[in-house]
Write a protein that binds this DNA or RNA. Structure first.
Lengths: 341, 341
DNA sequence: ATCTCCAGTGGGAACGCTCCCAAACTTGCC
DNA sequence: GGCAAGTTTGGGAGCGTTCCCACTGGAGAT
């Protein structure tokens, strides 16, 4: 049977109010009283009842983390676990709790309603929202604190993101500088903002390098291993010299397709990926890829949301996290001889 | 501003108590009243305040899911996301919420205290606990409802598991029946119960087949891709004919080592894995492996825990989920010619 | 017609906390 | 020594539910 404030008060010879003040670091407590109470608190390992606290003050220290359905299908991608880990770690450090929703369409409506009205959730992090998902609109309307991981091009919301356009552009320019002319891409899910942005970066680089654009060199791969595999099978017929692939997971599939077709990387086709998952240093050959610090992004997202909650700020945050092109062997940068041209 | 029971009561011309009865499906409400109230409820999309409900009744419909630290390191293994997805799906369906802890040692003590005393958590699912972890002891002492995914050999607790010993034994016997004599194993983390159990299954099969046991044919691989890679590098020198590998993730690492050593699978070394991750059908060659229905296990775990909560049962559950050996090509079962001998 | 019984309903109390106001005690100054 | 002002403490009210008990009214038995 957990103890209450009243119990602690009796044990330390003060009132319920004073105990509450000590717990909440209210400065209006004399140092001697504070120490006396804190001692009892520590010894008992007292945890205030969150339901009671939440009921009266609205402060529960609980945030919601929402990952929409369509993404669950590609949960085999370590992106989400890593993000979750980052969020969880920062929440632990800051004394917050994580309530998780892997949203499924059939429950989505009820889920939103629960998040907004159950009186327990102080803020929401929502990751990888498809462009036309209505969840975001509901969140915007509700005025609950929330933060998207991945920007939203249409709505004025707080978000944390990498500059996907620029990062993709840089990756492709790296291929350009290595002398490749016929550069293809395997895109992510284009309904996903990140997918569309990385594709845009590819286009920007082609334009910048004055390389011709061809619809035939573009294959949509929906961010899955299987999608990368199939997309590469289609691309092979077009004989590209290099391919920019919008996620490492898709690269793994693409490599599988290339192995089956007996094509060498990078001699026959050079590859650049996106994510820098831990396995990407160990592929054969090691993968040149855009590193985004996924777990760190989880940290930052949680910290930003918690700051919004605690300052009750309505100002919209825009946090851009740096990426870095990690050059390994799949792009042909270290080919003996030189680049292709 | 969310509505309260009192508001609904006013809108439907009854009392707070009656609305509460309708919401909680209390039979002592006349059909006409019930319908009248339900209509208002549906139209508003009313969500009762969980904090208030939790405070007075202790019922919050929140369960905790705990995944201990050491496991987070191998979060790149899709096992945990899949399990989580299964748990989440069943909770959604049954109207429960999931509070997630990816526990880190530094916060572990506080975390347990929070789970047990914050008054919000009705039950806990805890996955992949290391043998000597103290969390489980705390949970046992606390009398909170909880269920382990993965049995605990020392404590009398509720759990859901596959029969790792038998499944591993069957996998190894499959290799035996194909005629292999010199069968090695790459174990998982032996501090993990599943790791120890699968290793025991390997030993049982050797004994049953009257094959000699050799310490040299055993390599510990700690469940990671990298661990599998290094373990296989060590094993190669022993020239085993076949290897039973305790997780598919480790198989991927092992395959990488074999590729680098220019050894063919299964002609030079036959492999059998454990998990049947979605990529395992697409390896080269496709992997023979023990299928465990991970997501389904998440479903069942959540459902079992919720049943324990709702019936307030103190009886310990033991749920064993069936596995199945999926025979593909890595074991050599379909080698042209026949088996090795 | 009266009484009993029970299904159906309403409202008070309580859950454990925070917030606010008032009380008590200190301190400093005339 | 007395008073104002400030500091510290205590306790009542209230958050939105559930639970319990009491009340109402209609059906059925006598």
């Amino acid at each position: 049977m957990p103890l209450t404030l009243e119990d602690i008060a009796r044990l330390s010879g003060v009132s319920r109010s004073t105990v509450s003040r000590v717990i909440n670091h209210d400065p209006n407590v004399s140092e001697t009283t504070r120490q006396k109470v804190q001692e009892v608190l520590d010894q008992i390992g007292f945890q205030p009842n969150l339901a009671a606290k939440g009921l009266v003050s609205g402060k529960t220290n609980i945030i919601g983390v929402v990952i929409p359905t369509n993404v669950i299908k590609i949960f085999s991608d370590p992106y989400f676990p890593l993000l979750l880990q980052g969020i969880s770690a920062s929440c632990n450090a800051l004394g917050y709790f994580v309530m998780l929703w892997l949203s499924e369409p059939e429950y989505e409506h009820r889920m939103i309603s629960q998040i907004l009205h159950n009186g327990l959730i102080e803020g929401v992090i929502i990751a990888s929202v498809p462009l036309r998902d209505s969840i975001v609109n509901s969140l915007v309307d509700s005025h609950i604190h929330f933060l998207m991981v991945g920007r939203h091009p249409l709505l004025d919301v707080s978000y944390l993101d990498v500059d996907n356009v620029q990062a993709a552009r840089n990756a492709v320019m790296h291929l350009v500088h290595l002398g490749y002319k016929r550069i293809a891409t395997i895109t992510g899910d284009l309904d996903q903002i990140s997918g569309a942005d990385r594709f845009q970066g590819y286009l920007n680089a082609l334009r910048e390098a004055k390389l011709p654009f061809s619809q035939l060199l573009i294959a949509e791969g929906n961010y899955s291993e299987e999608g990368g595999y199939k997309a590469m099978q289609r691309l092979i017929k077009q004989k590209p010299e290099a391919v920019f692939i919008a996620s490492d997971m898709m690269v793994y599939g693409a490599m599988r397709a290339l192995r089956e077709a007996d094509l060498r990387i990078p001699e026959d086709i050079a590859l650049v990926g996106f994510d820098d998952l831990s396995n990407s240093a160990k592929t054969n050959p090691p993968l040149t890829t855009v590193r985004q610090p996924i777990s760190k992004m989880g940290n930052l997202a949680a910290e930003a949301l918690i700051e919004m909650i605690e300052t009750d700020s309505t100002e919209k945050k825009r946090i851009i996290v740096d990426t870095e092109l990690v050059v390994r062997q799949s792009c042909g940068a270290y080919l003996s001889g030189a680049a292709v041209n």
